[in-house]
Nucleic acid binder design. Structure first.
Lengths: 244, 244
DNA sequence: CCATACTGTTCCGTGTCACGGAACAAAGTT
DNA sequence: AACTTTGTTCCGTGACACGGAACAGTATGG
């Protein structure tokens, strides 16, 4: 473990997650826990391959990774078929729209579209967050079977804000409400002053994704948003059913 | 060259570009030009790292690559700030919208948004095409300095369709028109039955990107589209000027 | 049912090339 | 100018990547 050259390269690349920011050789060496000459050599190789880029003393992730990452098949397909529905949802609400899938005990965001307003959020395309703190996550969790739900509920619940639900009993009740209504609500559990409403996307009998719309708390009006989110999720589910 | 373990791993991963489709061990071995046991061992390592995924006998690109690829900084920043303008452009035209940057003698697409209509195009997020055959490419080429233009014009011009411009003289004239008008037109040069109109995006005195709208030939009406494309490109340029 | 032609996998002796401490150079800091 | 930290080169050692060969599964078809 931690032996081969590939492992070391992977450790170096993962130093850039999630911050992505540029690092210098020494910082990389420290973060990766590898001796400096080793990082020097490997980073040089990675630059040669286009997986890292170097400007002066700064290393950053390279273009080749973007190219390869864009080809990851399951991600690509879902994103492509979902995009029109996300567009519809955006146009209907003019708010920030998300598409996410479950990966283990986390939600990974595949797409995120928004208008000119900033809306500071912890979500990022390709980034992951706890299932329990976000609208998309709760929608996924509520419809991914009781085993996973119990598994998640049995562990300490992470929190992103003071409003994140950390009490298993409260979370269980919330999830049951979601199962009944088919819609997940979230208020300031992922970011302060942001509320969110999400709906699951089904295909072939299982939950494959969820989409959501996030809005500033002041503008949050569930009655307006709920139908749009539900419509988009159902539309996407229908198309996925047809092709998959 | 072709020596170290990393190089071999890179060769294997690049087998998935641009088709992305799943491959079996033997196919990988052949495509990569590496002996079967070697690919077996390396692919196993790559799976362990999350760079590849394996379902039965099929190998495909893994989730970790998507995650890392989404963090590539220059790409991420530009995409994020451009998105609202792409949305505007999409809403104004309701047609397929592209954002691309130049990389060497090719255009790389960073974003591509569209509605429910399919519109078969060779462009793909993360994918690259010749500068000379696409609207975005021609816009980038026309505003990337005379050295690059001459360099490109001095080489054989690739073609994606029978309508792609392969005559250097004709291309030079087209580029000069683009320089004057600030808009690039393209008709069926990248895909049959698809026309396109593109505009460059400037920041800090250089051309950093271009955006375009692609429409079925039957619906192509430059007078409608040109102002929208120009507006979006100028808006994005202004914001980039402010923050870059 | 066995022959045939593939696949994917394990084995293992060989030799290469990755390794990282140490020494050096370059660039800041006080 | 003395000192600290960073980036880079060197090189002897030994771990481990290598891939041919042999084996084991799995589809085709006589």
């Amino acid at each position: 473990m931690g032996g081969s050259m590939l492992d070391k390269a992977a450790v170096i690349l993962e130093c850039f997650s999630p911050s992505g920011g540029p690092y210098r050789l020494s910082e990389l060496s420290e973060r990766a826990g590898l001796p400096k000459p080793t990082v020097h050599r490997l980073a040089g190789d990675l630059v040669r391959l286009g997986w890292l880029e170097r400007s002066g003393p700064q290393y950053r992730l390279g273009a080749k990774l973007f190219e390869l990452g864009s080809l990851v098949p399951h991600r690509l397909d879902l994103r492509e078929t979902a995009l029109p529905f996300l567009q519809d949802l955006f146009e209907a609400t003019r708010e920030t729209v998300h598409l996410g899938v479950r990966e283990g005990m986390e939600v990974v965001y595949l797409e995120r579209i928004h208008g000119h307003e900033a809306l500071r959020l912890p979500s990022r395309i390709g980034g992951s967050l706890p299932l329990t703190c976000t609208g998309v996550g709760k929608a996924l969790l509520a419809f991914s079977g009781p085993e996973l739900m119990e598994e998640v509920l049995s562990r300490p619940l992470p929190s992103l804000t003071p409003y994140s639900i950390t009490d298993p009993t409260r979370l269980r009740m919330a999830l049951e409400k979601i199962q009944v209504s088919g819609l997940a609500y979230e208020e300031q559990e992922a970011a302060l002053d942001v509320s969110c409403i999400a709906a699951p996307v089904f295909a072939g009998g299982t939950t494959v994704a969820a989409l959501s719309v996030a809005v500033p708390r002041s503008r949050f009006s569930p009655a307006q948003l709920a139908p749009a989110v539900r419509t988009a999720a159902l539309g996407l589910s229908r198309v996925l059913r047809g092709s998959g």
